[in-house]
Design a protein around this nucleic acid. Sequence first.
DNA 1: GCGGGGTGCTTTCCAAACGTAAGTACCCAC
DNA 2: GTGGGTACTTACGTTTGGAAAGCACCCCGC
Lengths: 131, 131
Amino acid sequence: MAVSSGPQTGKGSAEAMCPYRLVLEHVTSRWGVLVLIHLLERPHRFSELRRAVGRMGRPVSEKMLAQTLQTLERDGMVLRDAQPVIPPRVDYSLTALGREAAEQVRTLALWTERRMAEVDSARRAYDEART
Amino acid sequence: MAVSSGPQTGKGSAEAMCPYRLVLEHVTSRWGVLVLIHLLERPHRFSELRRAVGRMGRPVSEKMLAQTLQTLERDGMVLRDAQPVIPPRVDYSLTALGREAAEQVRTLALWTERRMAEVDSARRAYDEART
DNA sequence: GCGGGGTGCTTTCCAAACGTAAGTACCCAC
DNA sequence: GTGGGTACTTACGTTTGGAAAGCACCCCGC
């Protein structure tokens, strides 16, 4: 349908229909969001990013951080620079594409933060209504 | 830290630290995104929304659609209007708050669609590099 | 010269999330 | 009176995600 809607002509698999939906899922994934926001600030090393993300949300497992970074790298959002030194040093940064995505995601995050009070009062009203 | 960063002063649970992160997760969740985009167009009934969402991504289970709508309703993004008729008729629409969120999510989705070609070529380069 | 530590992952195993399918309650059309 | 449509809810099995350990490498203290 394209985001702007319209009937779906084909009838293949969802993946074949809407490949961009997958990219959107990567960008808006729980850890994708946080990774993009932190990389927007400056490049980070792996474990540095892990600590940074853990500081603002719940902690990321190394597994998920690695997976998220690989996905975003494959999608052309994140640049991975692995220096063959000991101990290993890998720097992650945003591509131009990734920066565009990250800025939008960051805007959404900031908006959410600003509107938090409204959300809280909506929640209280909702919870109270069914007691 | 607020999205704009800065050191974390407290050291309670992640939920207590950053409540807005949960709201962001609701809004950017796999089905939350699609529900918001579709409701931005016009109000929808439950099964109508289910079909619409299924048309553009993979199909939503009724369970997850119900759960997503309840979460967004509690967060004050979605309005639920249940008319006590037979057969039951329930209309879902966006609140002012929900519309703001939906617009940003839709912008992101449109951006993803526009940039899809770049993502695809990045993926081909990535996949080819490790063969 | 050897245990401990730090790096960036990968693997293993278990818990939580999610999807599938069936159930519920209600009435109308056939 | 059987089938169908609505909006859910529940039970169960699969998929996904998290916690923890492993790995490969070397430097450092002792």
